[in-house]
Design a protein around this nucleic acid. Structure first.
Length: 946
RNA sequence: GCCGAAGUGGCGGAACGGUAGACGCGUACGGUUCAGGACCGUAUGGGAGCAAUUCCAUGGAGGUUCGAUUCCUCUCUUCGGCACCA
C-alpha cells in the first residue's frame, strides 16, 4: 500500500536528489525545517495510517493517552511516547502494519481542577489543551495515526461509555449502595479506595474523611478470581503483576461463629488462621459493625468511642497507627472450641469494610492484637510453637505493672550468646533499674554484666502507652542516644521487636512468614503442623459446625460516581414508581449540559443537580415524571476501553467494531507508566472481561504485552510542579530538534528504569547527530568494496541494535550506533551499504533526520517502511581471536590467535606458558590445573603460598 | 511493617560467571580561530613508580567457583508501591 508513494516524494524533493556529492551539496543541518517538512509529508502520504480492515500483519502499538490537564506535555510524557514509538517504528520496519493511535483522556477531576485554577470553563479549557497537546504531540515526531484520534469528552466517544454503563447495569454489575465512602473535602467529591493514598486524596493531597452516602458501584469483585488467575498468563512487567496480585489480595481462611453470652446474637469473624482458635483471648468489633452500633445505643462509652472514631480522618488513624485504642463493651462471647468466656471490645484498628468487620484476637500470634492486649491488660496465650524452639522471652517493665502481668507474660530478659540461649529471670524489683539504665544513658558496663547480643525491652507507661526497644551489640553507638530518644524514636528506627521475635522465637512470625510450627495448648489439636495442615483444622471446625472455609479479597467494588461537573453523565433515571431505569439506548448520549455554575458544591451533590432542565425527565418505563442521575462517572471508566474505540472512531452506530477487534486486539504492545499498575490496568481488564462475557469479543485480556517505563527525573530530583523543575520539551525541540531530544531521552538510561535529564547531555547528542550528518560529505561515489572487517562490524551492530530494541534497551542500542559511527568515521571509504544500514538502524530513534538523508541518498520511498536490516551470522566470526590469560583467576596477559588455533587447547597452553608476562607468576610453583574456555580464556591455577 | 527495584569513576550509565568502567557528559592538554563559541585530536577510576610495571577498587561481611559487578546467605543505604486486609 505504500509502494506508490515513492515517486511523489521523489518529485517533491528533486532539488536535494543530486547525485553529485561534493561538500556543498550537504547543507547545514537544520532540524526545525526538516522536521516540519517530514511531518507534513507523512501526514499527506498517510505513512502511519494502516488500513484497519485490510492490513495483513496487524500490530497494535498502544501507549497510555495523556490527561491534558496541566500546562502541556512535559518531557516525562514525551519520554514515554518516544519509547513506545521507537518500538512501533521498529515493528513497522520489520514488516508489520503498525497501528499507533493517540488521544486525550480529557474528562475528570484532573482537567476540571486545572480549569478551576486558570478560571476557565472546563469546556473552553479542554479546547485549548487539546490544541496545545496535539501540537506538541505532533512535534515529537511519533508515528501516530492522526486520523483515529479520540477525546473522552467528545460526545461521539462518551455516548458509548454511557452505553457500557448501561450494559453493566443490565447485567446487575452496576448498583447503588449506601456506604461509608471516602470523601475529599478539597475536591468535594467521593473517591474510590484506589484514589486514596495513605489517607490523602491522590490528586490534591488533602485529608480524606469518611461519609455515608448512596453511590454507584461496579461489581468488580465478581471478577476478582479471574482477574487474579489470568495474571499468570500475561506477558507483563513482573512488578506490575505483583502489584495487581497484591491489590486483589486474595486470602483463604475460615468464617467462624461466636455466640454472645446471654443473647441470641452471634458474631462472625473471618480468619486466615483458624488453627489459633484456642489462643483467642478477646474479640474486637469495628466501630462500623452493626453490633457496635447497637451496643452504642445503650452504652454511652461505646457510643462516644464510635463517634470519635468516625470523625477521625483516615490519616489520623494511620498517624496514630501503632497506638491502638478501644473500648470494652462489657459483653462476653463464647469461644466455640473451648467454651471459654472472652470479652468483646470495639476498636478502630479493625476495619469495617473487610471480612465481617469483626475479629477474633489472638495476641500471641498477631502483632496488632498483641499491642492491643498489652495496652489493655488482656491475656496472651501461646498456641503455636516453633519446632524445637527455645522459649520466647522479653522484658516488660513500668511502674504500674502488676504481679499478674508478670506471671502471665513470663517476664524475662533474654540473653543470647554464641552458643545458644540463656534465660534470665528479672525480678520485678529490678525492672526499675533497667529502666534507669536506659534513661541514664546506658554504659558498657551493662554489657559486661549481661553478654547479650540483643535485648528487647517492652515498657508500659502509666498512661497506657507501650514502647519497645531493641538493644544490640552492633548498636552500641546508638545506645548513648537511647536515653534521649527514649520516647519512641529508637524503637521505631530499629522497629523490629516483632522481627526479632520472629527470628528467635515462636511468635506471630509463624503467621507472617508462613513458617512451620506445631500447635500447643490446644487440647486435641496439639501436635498438628501448621500452616501446612490448616486444611485439617478447617475440616474439623466444619464438622463441628463452628465455621466454614471462606475466601476473601482485598479488592472492593469500584465506586464510580463523582459529584463533579466535568465528567461522563451517568445515564440513569430514577422513577419514584419504577425505581432506577437506564436511559434508553436510542436516547444516548446524555449530553453534559453547558452550565455556568459548574464549580463543585461540596454538599454531596453534583453541580448538575441544580439544573432543572437536566434533572427533570420522564421515566422510560412508565412515562411518569422522573429525575436524572446527576453524578458523573469516575474518569477511569473513560480510559477503561479507549483502545477498543480507536479502531472504531469512524463507526457511529456501535461502540465496537467486532471484525476489527478480532483483527487488531488484544493489544500487541502496551507501554505506560507504572503509576497505573493497579487502577487503569485493572479496570480495563475488568471491562474487557465483561465484553467477553457479553459475547462481544472472543478474548478476556486486553493487553498481551505490557511494559512499564521508568521515571524520568531532573538532575537527581523528581520532576514536580511544586519543585518547579518540570521540563517542557518545546524549547529543546526548538533548539536541537525532536530527533536529538528523542535520541537523548532514549540514551539516558534503560527505558524500563528511567533516567536523569541533564541539559549538558543533550548537547552531546546534538553533536552526534551533526556528526552523522556531516559523515555524508565523505560518502565515496564509487561503490567501494566493503572490507571483511567492515562487514563484520556492520553485522555485529545490526545484531546488537535489533536485539536491544526488541528488549527496550534503547540506551545500549544507541551507544552501539555511536560506536558504529566512530568506526565508520575512521574509515577511508564508506560504502553505501554501510551508510544505508546506519540510517536504517537509527530511523526509529531519529525519524525525520534519517528520512531526510534516506530520501536524498536513495531517492526511494520512506525509510520508515523500508526493510529493517537482518544480520548474517556468518559475518560475525572474527578471524583473529583474543584470548585472556589468567593466573589464579587474575588477568595477566592476552594473546591473539587464529580461529583454528583457538580450538587447540594444547597449543594455546604452550603459547601462553611461553609468555613472560604470564610465566613470571609461576615462580617455579607447580601448575595444579589449567582451565581453558574455548576462544575466551585460559586460566592457570598455581599452588598458592608455601 | 510488607512487597519490589537499585547501590559500579566527578556525573548518566556498560559488562551470556571469563580483560570492570562500553557509549556519552564533564575535565585537562593540543590543533583550528583576531577572540569566544563551534569543530577536530589526545588523555582521563584510585594509589606507587621516570618507566616497563604493579597494587587496590563494583555499599559492607561471608559463601559457592579455577575465576563473582553477575549466583547464594546475612547486613546497610536509597528509591518506588502498598499499608491496622485479621
Amino acid at each position: 500500500m505504500f509502494k506508490d508513494i515513492a515517486g511523489e516524494i521523489f518529485l517533491c524533493y528533486t532539488p536535494f536528489m543530486t547525485k553529485t556529492r561534493d561538500k556543498t551539496s550537504i547543507p547545514k543541518y537544520d532540524p526545525s525545517e526538516i522536521e516540519k517538512k517530514w511531518q507534513k509529508i507523512w501526514d499527506s502520504e498517510k505513512t502511519y495510517q494502516p488500513d484497519l480492515d485490510k492490513a495483513k500483519k496487524p500490530f497494535y502499538n498502544l501507549m497510555m493517552f495523556p490527561y491534558p490537564s496541566a500546562e502541556g506535555l512535559h518531557v516525562g510524557n514525551m519520554y514515554a511516547f518516544t519509547g513506545a514509538d521507537v518500538y512501533g517504528r521498529f515493528k513497522r520496519m520489520q514488516g508489520n502494519d503498525v497501528f499507533e493511535p493517540i488521544g486525550l483522556d480529557g474528562f475528570g477531576i484532573h482537567s476540571e481542577n486545572y480549569a478551576l485554577k486558570v478560571g476557565l470553563h472546563p469546556k473552553e479549557q479542554a479546547k485549548k489543551s487539546e490544541e496545545n497537546f496535539y501540537r506538541q504531540l505532533q512535534a515529537i515526531g511519533n508515528g501516530f495515526d492522526w486520523s483515529k484520534k479520540l477525546e473522552t469528552y467528545d460526545p461521539n466517544y462518551y455516548k458509548w461509555t454511557q452505553w457500557i454503563f448501561i450494559q453493566l447495569f443490565k447485567k446487575g454489575l452496576a448498583y447503588r449502595k449506601k456506604a461509608s465512602v471516602n470523601f475529599c473535602p478539597q475536591d468535594k467529591t467521593v473517591l474510590a479506595d484506589e484514589q486514596v493514598i495513605a489517607g490523602l486524596c491522590e490528586r490534591c493531597n488533602s485529608q480524606v474523611v469518611k461519609k455515608d452516602l448512596e453511590q454507584w458501584f461496579f461489581k468488580i469483585t465478581d471478577y476478582a478470581e479471574r482477574l487474579l488467575n489470568n495474571i499468570d498468563k500475561l506477558d507483563w512487567s513482573e512488578k506490575v503483576k505483583i502489584a495487581q496480585r497484591q491489590w486483589i489480595g486474595k486470602s483463604e481462611g475460615a468464617r467462624i461463629k461466636f455466640k454472645v453470652k446471654n443473647s441470641q446474637s452471634e458474631i462472625e469473624v473471618y480468619t486466615t488462621r483458624p488453627d489459633t482458635l484456642h489462643g483467642v483471648t478477646f474479640m474486637v468489633l469495628a466501630p462500623e459493625h452493626e453490633i457496635s452500633k447497637e451496643i452504642s445505643k445503650k452504652n454511652n462509652e461505646v457510643g462516644e468511642y464510635i463517634k470519635v472514631a468516625q470523625k477521625r480522618t483516615e490519616q489520623e488513624r494511620i498517624a496514630e497507627g501503632k497506638e491502638k485504642t478501644g473500648v470494652d463493651t462489657g459483653l462476653i462471647a463464647i469461644n466455640p472450641v473451648n467454651n471459654e468466656e472472652i470479652p468483646i471490645w470495639v476498636a478502630d484498628y479493625v476495619l469495617g469494610g473487610y471480612g465481617t468487620g469483626a475479629i477474633m484476637a489472638v495476641p500471641a500470634h498477631d502483632f496488632r492484637d498483641f499491642e492491643f492486649a498489652l495496652r489493655y491488660d488482656l491475656p496472651v496465650v501461646q498456641v503455636i510453637s516453633k519446632l524445637n524452639a527455645p522459649i520466647r522471652s522479653y522484658l516488660m517493665g513500668g511502674e504500674d505493672i502488676s504481679d499478674e502481668d508478670l506471671k502471665r507474660l513470663k517476664i524475662k530478659i533474654l540473653d543470647t550468646t554464641e552458643k545458644g540461649y540463656r534465660k534470665i529471670e528479672i525480678p520485678k524489683s529490678k525492672i526499675k533499674d533497667y529502666e534507669k539504665l536506659i534513661e541514664n544513658k546506658m554504659t558498657l558496663g551493662f554489657w559486661n554484666e549481661y553478654i547479650a547480643k540483643e535485648i528487647i525491652f517492652i515498657f508500659k507507661f502509666k498512661d497506657g502507652k507501650v514502647k519497645r526497644f531493641v538493644l544490640s551489640r552492633e548498636n552500641e553507638k546508638e545506645i548513648d542516644k537511647l536515653g534521649e530518644e527514649f520516647n519512641g524514636r529508637v524503637w521505631k528506627k530499629k522497629a523490629s521487636v516483632w522481627k526479632w521475635l520472629a527470628k528467635n522465637d515462636t511468635y506471630a512470625d509463624l503467621i507472617v512468614h508462613g513458617e512451620q510450627g506445631e500447635i500447643i495448648n490446644s487440647g486435641e489439636w496439639d501436635g498438628i503442623r501448621v500452616p501446612n495442615e490448616i486444611g485439617k483444622i478447617i475440616e474439623l471446625i466444619g464438622r463441628k459446625q463452628i465455621g466454614k472455609r471462606e475466601v476473601n479479597y482485598h479488592l472492593r467494588d469500584w465506586l464510580i460516581s463523582r459529584q463533579r461537573y466535568w465528567g461522563l453523565p451517568i445515564p440513569m433515571i430514577n422513577c419514584s414508581k419504577c425505581g432506577w431505569q437506564p436511559v434508553p439506548e436510542k436516547d444516548l448520549p446524555v449530553l453534559l449540559p453547558d452550565v455556568k455554575d459548574w464549580k463543585p458544591k461540596g454538599d454531596g451533590q453534583s453541580p448538575l443537580a441544580n439544573i432543572e432542565s437536566f434533572v427533570k425527565t420522564k421515566c422510560p418505563n412508565c412515562g411518569g415524571n422522573a429525575e436524572r442521575e446527576t453524578d458523573v462517572s469516575d474518569t477511569f471508566l473513560d480510559s477503561a476501553w479507549y483502545f477498543f474505540r480507536y479502531i472504531a472512531t469512524d463507526k457511529t452506530k456501535e461502540a465496537l467494531d467486532k471484525q476489527r477487534i478480532e483483527k487488531w486486539l488484544p493489544v500487541n504492545m502496551y507501554i505506560g507508566g507504572a503509576e497505573h499498575s493497579v487502577l487503569h490496568l485493572l479496570y480495563s481488564r475488568f471491562i474487557t472481561m465483561f465484553f467477553k462475557d457479553q459475547g462481544l469479543i472472543s478474548f478476556e485480556e486486553p493487553y498481551s504485552k505490557f511494559r512499564a517505563h521508568g521515571l524520568l527525573i531532573k538532575e537527581g530530583a523528581k520532576m514536580s510542579k511544586s519543585r518547579g523543575n518540570v521540563v517542557i520539551p518545546d524549547k529543546y525541540i526548538k533548539k536541537f530538534g525532536a530527533d536529538t531530544l528523542r535520541l537523548y531521552l532514549m540514551f539516558i538510561g534503560p527505558f524500563i528504569q528511567g533516567g536523569d535529564f541533564y541539559d549538558t547531555g543533550i548537547e552531546g547528542m546534538y553533536r552526534f547527530v551533526k556528526r552523522v550528518w556531516t559523515l555524508f560529505t565523505r560518502i565515496s561515489d564509487s561503490n567501494s568494496q566493503i572490507t571483511n572487517e567492515s562487514q563484520r562490524v556492520m553485522h555485529k551492530t545490526i545484531k546488537k541494535v535489533t536485539e536491544d530494541i526488541e528488549n527496550l534497551r534503547y540506551n545500549t542500542a544507541i551507544s552501539s550506533l555511536m560506536e558504529y559511527y566512530n568506526f565508520l568515521s575512521k574509515q577511508k571509504f564508506i560504502s553505501k551499504e554501510e551508510i544505508k544500514t546506519l540510517l536504517l538502524l537509527m530511523a526509529p530513534f531519529a525519524p525525520h533526520f534519517t528520512e531526510e538523508l534516506w530520501v536524498r541518498e536513495r531517492g526511494e520511498s520512506s525509510i520508515h517502511i523500508s526493510q529493517w536490516p537482518i544480520y548474517d551470522p556468518k559475518f560475525l566470526t572474527e578471524s583473529e581471536i583474543t584470548i585472556v590469560v589468567q593466573v589464579n583467576g587474575k588477568m595477566r596477559s592476552t594473546l591473539k590467535v587464529s580461529q583454528g588455533e583457538s580450538l587447540n587447547q594444547q597449543l594455546i597452553e604452550k603459547i601462553a606458558k611461553k609468555n613472560q608476562k604470564v610465566n613470571k607468576y609461576f615462580n617455579n610453583k607447580q601448575i595444579k590445573k589449567v582451565i581453558y574456555i574455548k576462544g575466551k580464556v585460559i586460566n592457570f591455577v598455581v599452588a598458592n603460598g608455601y
